Amino acid sequence: PNALGDAATDLVFVPISPCRLFDTRLAGGAIAANTVRSFDVTAVSDYSFQGGAASNCNGVGAAGSFAAAVINFTTVTPSAAGYITAFPFGTTQPLAATVNYGGGDIRGNLATVALDQGASANELSVYSFAQTHLVGDIIGYFINPQATALQCVEVDGTVLNLAAGAAGNAFAGSCPAGYTAVETQCRPSIFGMRVAGSWTSHCNMVNDSASAGTVTATARCCRVPGR
């Protein structure tokens, strides 16, 4: 079962065209040394208030609350060598570096960052060791598992001809790649035929009538979308 994933804990990645979430050169000013700046990532229709795109960033802002974001962080002209650490808003800053930089340079790094999913407006915090400007471009995000309906198709097998009093097996069609047979439906053409046994691959039929007839076995094939 683990090969199919865990619906309670797995996340689903949604890629987007890169979009700017924030740019301190345009809003807010440089992050001061040894301080934390927080940013709004979800439920935003226009990111320009924090120096980002004047849009919802290709649906990011309309996706509701989500668990994590994939962001390219770029530090611009830091005052000295140091690092930034990105982490969920409202949590303890981890002992880790998201981008290591040198004084006066421009340095970028792509990182997956967990986000706060509480009621606060901000979801992401960034600590900087030295004063620096910071740019954040999102390329995708992870949403919580979504319930999806099964996708099913029906595949007829070869028609079985049964004379009066005869018995035989009617075999269902083969499922398309990626689908699994979950049941077989046995479809006689006349009354007086009975099902002696049914499996996901075939039907065992007996023709108790006085006339010849036909039987079609139909496989019901299903899959979980995206699997």
Rank of each mutant, 00 (worst) to 15 (best):
S48T: 04
F49C: 02
F49M: 03
Q50I: 00
Q50K: 00
Q50G: 00
G51K: 08
G52M: 02
A53C: 01
A54N: 05
S55W: 01
S55C: 00
N56W: 04
C57N: 06
C57T: 07
C57K: 03
C57S: 05
C57L: 06
C57V: 06
N58R: 06
N58V: 02
N58H: 06
G59S: 03
V60Y: 01
V60R: 01
G61P: 03
A62K: 04
A62C: 03
A63G: 07
G64H: 07
G64M: 10
S65L: 12
A67S: 15
A67R: 14
A68W: 04
A69R: 05
V70I: 12
V70Q: 13
V70T: 13
V70P: 01
N72A: 08
N72I: 11
T74E: 13
T74I: 06
T75L: 07
T75F: 05
V76N: 13
P78L: 05
S79K: 11
A81I: 04
G82I: 03
Y83R: 13
Y83T: 13
I84W: 08
T85Q: 14
T85Y: 11
F87N: 11
F87C: 09
P88C: 02
P88H: 04
F89S: 10
F89W: 14
G90S: 10
G90H: 10
G90K: 09
G90Y: 07
G90P: 11
T91W: 02
T92Q: 10
Q93L: 07
Q93P: 00
L95A: 15
A96S: 12
A97I: 01
A97V: 02
A97F: 04
V99Q: 04
V99S: 04
V99P: 00
V99E: 03
Y101K: 04
Y101V: 08
G103L: 06
I106Q: 15
I106R: 13
I106P: 08
I106L: 12
R107Q: 15
G108A: 15
N109T: 11
N109S: 12
A111F: 02
A111L: 04
T112K: 14
T112V: 13
T112R: 15
V113I: 15
D116C: 00
D116K: 00
Q117D: 01
Q117M: 13
Q117L: 07
G118M: 03
G118F: 04
A119H: 09
A119K: 10
S120D: 14
S120H: 08
A121D: 15
A121G: 13
N122V: 07
E123G: 00
L124N: 10
L124T: 08
V126C: 03
Y127Q: 02
Y127F: 14
F129D: 03
F129G: 00
Q131Y: 00
V135G: 02
D137F: 09
I138G: 05
I138F: 03
G140Y: 14
G140L: 13
G140R: 12
G140I: 12
Y141F: 15
F142C: 06
N144K: 14
N144G: 10
Q146C: 02
Q146T: 11
A147E: 10
A147D: 11
A147M: 09
A149L: 14
A149R: 13
L150G: 01
L150I: 05
Q151Y: 00
Q151G: 02
Q151R: 10
Q151V: 11
Q151K: 07
Q151E: 13
